[in-house]
Nucleic acid binder design. Structure first.
Lengths: 198, 198
DNA sequence: TTGACAAGCTACCGATCGTTCGGTAACCTA
DNA sequence: TAGGTTACCGAACGATCGGTAGCTTGTCAA
């Protein structure tokens, strides 16, 4: 249990990455420790030097995914003043993160129910901050009378859903040009949210 | 293996329903036959009177979900002439079906990779028809110059994604008034798709 | 040169997995 | 009332599950 997450312990993070990919593909319950061991080229026993149990592994994966999300999505976006531009960048960075980095584990939030209640609360709490970032941008747009007449909570859900959905497509049928996918998703979302230009 | 699916063998369908709910909640791999048996109040052995294996159970669930989708969503919507109204009704019926009926298993399409390739193809083929229904409506809207300048395939994905997303929310934090949720989702989607009224 | 330690390994544990077996009570039909 | 079918049960199967104990390395500081 490391307290200082300053530099990157490469092997451990590689295990997280690989485990996350497997779990996105086959689910938490459908991914065995043996599967993970085989995928990283180790034995089961060897893996247990990097984490203390399967449940804790999921917890670590979720946490480091949120860490990375904070670093490459939330933090850069937060400094943008205009709420519309902030939202556009938020979507762009989130999708890019899921494609280029292994940030795709965001999909795994659907698996957070396999954690113990205390761990679930921590994860949900951290996620709510990301949620709040979107909701805040929507509120600012509403104040500036640039937002359509819509339910902010439901709209927030739809935005979150669109981003995680794009990650899910990647793992099945969709193989389009990433930049095109990003631009279309941003345009689609903005059209849904903003009042039409006068 | 029944060939005539005319009337409803109640108990078998109850097992499908229950199994689907468990799998939505815990994933295919995370749901054991024992779990299902306990949930329906039977022994594991007794269950095997109703299906021949876990994989085939998933296949049957997916198929009967699509059957029901055809019946209560696709077929009623298909008869609506105006593409916009058709799309609105499509979204409404789909969400209603997921809430009131156990049609929520749509979420399980993310688990179709646990099937054998031949079964996967059948399911994907049937799903493509639902997909095509949306895409067709978008194309008609484009012909009538009522659609924004957008990528029809990606937009179709986003619509599908919004509908299945609503089903996913139901199973975690969201407990809003269904009619409100439906109206907001339709409004959000239409704003994203249609050119603003002149 | 030594020794501490991280990072692996082989070998194994009890529990649970999906699945099959033989049997049985209740019902339908002739 | 005999024969067959439907719907289930208890018990067990081999395989795999998550996890552990103890041994062997490679690396590097003292």
């Amino acid at each position: 249990m490391k307290l200082i997450a300053g530099e990157a312990p490469t092997r451990t993070e590689e295990i997280y990455r690989t485990a996350a990919e497997l779990m996105v593909e086959k689910g938490y319950g459908g991914t065995s420790i043996s599967d993970i061991a085989q995928a990283v080229g180790m034995t089961k026993a060897g893996l247990y030097h990097h984490f203390s149990g399967k449940q804790e592994l999921l917890f670590q994966i979720l946490n480091s995914a949120i860490d990375e999300g904070d670093r490459v999505v939330s933090k850069p976006a937060r400094s943008i003043e205009d709420p519309e531009q902030r939202l556009r960048q938020l979507i762009r960075l989130q999708i890019q993160g899921q494609i280029s980095l292994g940030l795709a584990f965001i999909v795994l939030f659907s698996e957070r129910n396999h954690l113990e209640p205390a761990q679930q609360k921590k994860i949900s709490g951290r996620m709510r901050k990301f949620h709040a970032l979107i909701k805040q941008a929507l509120r600012e747009l509403a104040e500036q009378d640039r937002l359509r007449n819509l339910d902010v909570d439901i709209a927030t859900m739809h935005i979150m859903n669109a981003m995680t959905g794009v990650a899910r497509w990647k793992h099945q049928n969709f193989a389009s040009d990433p930049e095109h996918l990003i631009q279309e998703t941003i345009a689609y979302t903005m059209a849904a949210l903003l009042k039409p230009a006068s």
